[in-house]
């Protein structure tokens, strides 16, 4: 069971590259990303190609990357499940929503939920770590609502526009995610359906569109 929504995760295709590069070149988007904000467009493109090219179908990948897609909006963001440790059964999860109007809203929440579901129920991990800048209030709220525990406050850890900001670290253990998931199920029983139903519907619609053209 999962939250009912037409938003789903899928492997990135070659044709997604342009839209992801477009997000990454947006200064407003870069402001929230870790890394050197002065990276050149060429470097950004190389980074994305290398990231998306990693094979999620490997039996023990070090990272998996998904496009957050929606039949209504099209590709809206990128999910990175990285630093996967198969010994510690842990990972870090980063959610990037490229579409400004959807940041911090329901779409972001569903994307994060899907990523956590994948990490815990498909990869069978034990712990997810999420980092967020203190000024990214929308993401903080989203992460806190997912049941993650605020574990770290790294003071004056990142510089933006000449000012040092705090960075927060959150940890979510599998048992905490299950509690959160059950709470969601209790609160919104009507909003549950099979996890891939929306994705299948979207895929079918897309296939229909391609056949028609």
């Amino acid at each position: 069971m999962a939250i009912k929504s037409s938003i789903y995760l899928r492997r990135a295709e070659r044709e997604d590259l342009d839209v992801v590069v477009e997000w990454m070149e947006d200064p407003d988007f870069l402001y929230f990303l870790y890394g050197d904000p002065a990276r050149s467009p060429k470097r950004i493109r190389e980074q994305i190609v290398s990231m998306l090219g990693r094979n999620a179908s490997q039996s023990m990948p070090g990272g998996v990357y998904f496009i957050v897609d929606s039949p209504r909006y099209g590709p809206i963001g990128l999910i990175a499940i990285q630093n996967i440790s198969w010994r510690n059964r842990s990972c870090s999860v980063d959610t990037y929503i490229g579409e400004k109007k959807l940041r911090g809203g329901f779409a972001s929440a569903v994307a994060l939920f899907r990523a956590l579901e994948y990490a815990f129920h498909e990869l069978n991990l034990h712990r997810a770590t999420l980092y967020v800048y203190a000024f990214n209030k929308a993401s903080r709220r989203l992460i806190e609502r997912s049941g993650a525990v605020h574990e770290l406050t790294m003071r004056e850890h990142v510089a933006r526009g000449g000012t040092l900001y705090d960075m927060y670290g959150y940890g979510l253990l599998r048992r905490e995610f299950e509690t959160f998931r059950n709470e969601v199920a209790e609160r919104m029983p009507e909003a549950l359906l099979e996890a891939n139903q929306a994705a299948e519907a979207a895929a079918a619609a897309k296939q229909g569109g391609e056949s028609a053209s």
Binding site: N88, H126, L152, T153, M154, R155, E156, G171
Partner: peptide, 24 residues
């Protein structure tokens, strides 16, 4: 202390926590 990351390391049959500390 900046905080403790819970159960980040699995070794010798149990979970271990990792604490971050800083000095300005």
């Amino acid at each position: 202390s900046d905080g403790v990351q819970r159960e980040v390391l699995y070794t010798q049959g149990c979970w271990r926590d990792l604490e971050s500390l800083s000095l300005f």
